[in-house]
């Protein structure tokens, strides 16, 4: 099965980023393809490499970067939502990119499922 993920909430403020990541890991482990994680609303803040949580806390941006590197999952931030919140190419994690809402539409069309996480 091919799965797209839509993540609509920022990291740390809400559990959504953690649940989305655990869900993606489980799906991949079960042999499914996670095509892309599309970030919308405050969700775009998931891809900034500037985040620097305390050592004993998880680094959410780093998790997404690893997911991209290890499993080829595209980590995509919506350009309109990113511009509004000061996210640009300069702050992106490795494996992240900024793209338009047309890409989300393509993700919705080409995958068997689109699973949304958010507040």
């Amino acid at each position: 099965m091919k799965i797209g993920i839509l993540l609509k909430e920022g990291p740390y403020n809400h559990q959504a980023s953690d649940t989305a990541w655990k869900f993606a890991e489980a799906a991949i482990k079960m042999g499914h393809t996670v095509d892309a994680v599309f970030l919308y609303n405050d969700g775009v803040s998931n891809v900034t490499k500037l985040m620097d949580p305390p050592q004993d806390d998880r680094n959410i941006a780093h998790r997404w970067s690893e997911l991209s590197k290890q499993h080829g999952v595209e980590i995509l931030a919506c350009i309109a939502a990113s511009k509004r919140r000061g996210i640009n190419d300069d702050v992106l994690i490795e494996g992240g990119s900024i793209t338009g809402l047309g890409t989300l539409t393509d993700i919705a069309i080409r995958n068997d499922r689109l699973v949304t996480f958010g507040d």
């Binding site: 309109a80 939502a81 047309g102 989300l104 539409t105 069309i109």
Partner: peptide, 19 residues
């Protein structure tokens, strides 16, 4: 909250894709 406004932005883009 911004959810409805950004939702509308998403809807307007998706509308161009003839779904």
């Amino acid at each position: 909250t911004i959810y409805t406004y950004e939702g509308l932005e998403m809807i307007l883009i998706m509308a161009a894709y003839e779904q």
